[in-house]
């Protein structure tokens, strides 16, 4: 980058790690998420929607980006050779995982923020709860994928679990109570805190599981 032949300190080292991870392990998922965001207005029509109708593209489609961005965060080390190499290093794996989770979650939030803002520009009735609610659903879905990935080293199965949960919500939503991800679309603008907190708990658990299964 802008570094010359000089000493690089810890902050710069962390920055370099972040940059490399984004460049090699994150970019394709980000682009896929962008495509989802761009397709959404095409499928749903996003003008003049009321509060409840605005929640629909958010909860049913935008929330899927949570799965795309968060589920594959452990995938780069799914290959046994790479895993052994990285594990033998001085820096603990969980350090890199934490970096990835931070930028992935931030990206997710920003994408949702951007889309809600887009809705607002299109004269839809949206407010901060739409951002918060969609983010909670998206985070929860992604966290399901991440924790599956911590338990099973596979490049496809971790996507199955959040998608199955998504399907389950499609058909039997009321039975899921506070963990129903399409609440706002049904007119319920409260209770998303359970999804949000659970999402974070699952993500942290996933990192801990990874950390202790590597020992």
């Amino acid at each position: 980058m802008f570094l010359k032949n000089s000493e690089i300190n810890r902050f710069k080292k962390t920055l370099l790690l972040t940059e490399k991870n984004i460049k090699y392990n994150f970019l394709k998922y980000f682009i896929l998420s962008l495509i989802i965001i761009l397709i959404t207005p095409v499928i749903f029509g996003t003008q003049n929607l009321d509060s409840r109708a605005s929640a629909i593209p958010l909860e049913f489609f935008i929330a899927l980006t949570g799965i795309i961005l968060i589920t594959p965060l452990f995938f780069p080390e799914n290959d046994a050779g790479t895993d052994e190499l990285i594990t033998s290093k001085y820096f603990e794996n969980s350090f890199v995982y934490t970096i990835r989770i931070i930028y992935a979650v931030l990206t997710l939030f920003l994408l949702i923020l951007f889309f809600v803002f887009y809705l607002k520009l299109n004269n839809c009735t949206v407010n901060f709860y739409h951002i918060y609610g969609t983010f909670s659903s998206a985070l929860f879905l992604g966290s399901l994928g991440l924790i599956t990935s911590a338990l099973i080293k596979n490049n496809a199965v971790p996507y199955m679990i959040p998608l199955i949960y998504f399907m389950l919500n499609f058909s039997g939503g009321s039975k899921l109570g506070k963990f129903y991800i399409f609440g706002m679309s049904s007119g319920i603008f409260e209770g998303k805190i359970f999804l949000l907190v659970s999402g974070f708990v699952l993500i942290i658990s996933a990192v801990l599981i990874k950390k202790y299964s590597e020992k």
Binding site: F44, L49, D50, R52, S185
Partner: peptide
């Protein structure tokens, strides 16, 4: 229009 509830004003 595509199966989802939409409120037109």
């Amino acid at each position: 229009p595509i199966g989802f509830y939409k409120n037109i004003i």
